[in-house]
Amino acid sequence: MTLKEELKEKKSAIVQKWIDAALASYHKDAQGALRQTKAQFTNPAGFNLAQGLDGLFDALLEGVITDSVATFLDMTVRLRAVQDFAPSEALAFLIRIKQIVRDELGRERLDAPGVRTDLAAFDAAADDLMLYAFDLYMQCREKIYDIKAQEARSQTYRLLQKAQSIADKE
């Protein structure tokens, strides 16, 4: 069995642990509610996290991280980019997938021939994913500042229009 096949088989357990790793950054009293990952509209935080990580894990198995992961990444990162986390805290859960996969495989399997090479490829994909996440996180933060600037502009638009027309008359 190749590493990819094995990880595919263990997908649900691995993704669950990945979700747990992300939820661990919230206070214990909040985790129960956030864990309701089926409620798309009443618990969008848990739902998007679970759906996003599920899709990202499939991408990692393919070993190629491209723009096609954007939707899933967005589901996991956009909310955390405005939550009370330092940038590193906001994204740390993504690289935890490396340790989760190792824990799930067990020491014996890790030493098996071929696994180490395959795992290196998996790790490389996880690293790429992290780089994409970093870009998205920055886009989100920049968007917040852009929105603040737009809001200030929209609030003063009529004033500027007025000032302009007074200036024109003079």
């Binding site: 919230y26 206070h27 009293d29 509610a33 009443t42 935080a45």
Partner: peptide
């Protein structure tokens, strides 16, 4: 009420649960 507040859903902060 705990998970019905939009601020709780968005922040994950237990003190935004209406009960708390």
């Amino acid at each position: 009420c705990a998970d019905k507040c939009h601020f709780f859903i968005g922040t994950g902060d237990p003190k935004n649960m209406p009960v708390l």
